[in-house]
Design a protein around this nucleic acid. Structure first.
Lengths: 209, 209
DNA sequence: GTGTACATGTAATCCGTTACATGATTCC
DNA sequence: GGAATCATGTAACGGATTACATGTACAC
């Protein structure tokens, strides 16, 4: 709860240290895999892969991030059809952008702790206020959802397996697949805990734990 | 169709549906376990328990949320030492607040999908831009950090084990403990993947995958 | 008398979402 | 002609953080 070391923030002009939010690096990363993409395409790509281990920004956020990357000289855009409004705009990563991304990716700095917000567990935490069946149903629905996600992760990993250069995305997706399996196990273990708790409550609270 | 005063949103006075952000319910939940706490105390409590499965809001956020809860009639505050500025202010949950919290906790509505943002995996995803040693070091540091967290979760669970009424927090913390164990295994599996990948790269890419 | 923990709050700012507005193309 | 998908963007807003401002109590 105390102060950290100071650092200025408004000094990201060109080329120097330019601290982007992680989302910025993520978008630049998407751009680095495949050349000349529209924001719309990047969004779909994020939805079908990035979101499993990181997050898929809203489309409007992606557009904003792309504009920022271009302002920094990390990306270039080419607008189809002269200067009409609403023409499709395709972005490419620049050399400068590739350099900055590589420097970021290879940096030794702390990537930051994982952020985990689990609304289901939050509900369980307040379980004494809910009926046992409510909780059970919630957990079961979560298990169903996770199974669905798991399928999607697998598909994504299989797709990635077909492109030789996507070795690292493949590792990330492999991590994600195992993560989803673990999530299933965790939910099932919690279900068992809840059942045990409900059973203990139905009996008069005589003996031990 | 265009009637003015139909659904303005600043009309959540008392008792009706009052949709809070999850953070609001979390803070109200903290308040529901222990009566008469200061914002500062709630923050520490969140840091040592809530954050393992959900999240610990910034202290300023907690103060803001407490003010909102009071405005909704879900909490009351009592200010020590008359009307001095900067006196300590203790909050209590009200009956109305307890009712609203219970209704929320027992609701069948979707609690929302878990949010997982894993900056480390994001880095791995872009691993082709980094030196193998950089990644290894990152993952190993993450393992160390997770081990530390695991210890803290265990402490929290042991503390919770001493209070009989904290059965559900105990379940949540049990989930969290297993989650941290899983996180360790995931990181180790990823490390193995990375090593395999690095080894394959050192050899000429002759045969199959 | 200095540092640390306790304690509260404001201001600026940013990140990100939702809702809205617009329009082209394609398929039926 | 109408729906779905592709495609881009603006506006309003809310959630949350950081930095800052302020002050007490207590230990050393």
């Amino acid at each position: 709860m105390t102060s950290r070391h100071t650092r200025n923030k408004q000094e990201n002009r060109q080329g120097n240290d330019a601290r982007l939010p992680l989302t910025g690096w993520a978008v630049l990363g998407l751009l680095s895999f495949r050349g000349e993409r529209t924001g719309y395409e990047l969004k779909k790509w994020a939805d079908s892969s990035l979101r499993f281990f990181y997050w898929s920004p809203a489309i409007s956020q992606i557009y904003a991030e792309l504009r920022r990357l271009e302002a920094l000289g990390y990306a270039m855009s080419r607008c189809s059809g002269a200067e009409e409004p609403r023409a499709t705009r395709r972005y490419t990563i620049t050399e400068s952008g590739r350099g900055a991304l590589a420097a970021w990716a290879d940096g030794a700095g702390d990537p930051g702790a994982p952020v985990l917000k689990h609304p289901l567990v939050l509900r369980v935490w307040l379980g004494h206020l809910a009926a046992p069946d409510t909780l059970r149903a919630l957990v079961e629905r979560h298990i169903e959802r996770t199974r669905g996600e798991l399928k999607e992760v697998r598909d994504a990993r299989l797709r990635a397996a077909r492109v030789a250069e996507w070795e690292f995305p493949r590792v990330a997706l492999g991590w994600s697949e195992r993560q989803h399996l673990a999530e299933l196990e965790l939910a099932e273990a919690m279900l068992a805990d809840l059942d045990r708790l409900a059973a203990a409550r139905r009996r008069p609270p005589t003996g031990g734990a």
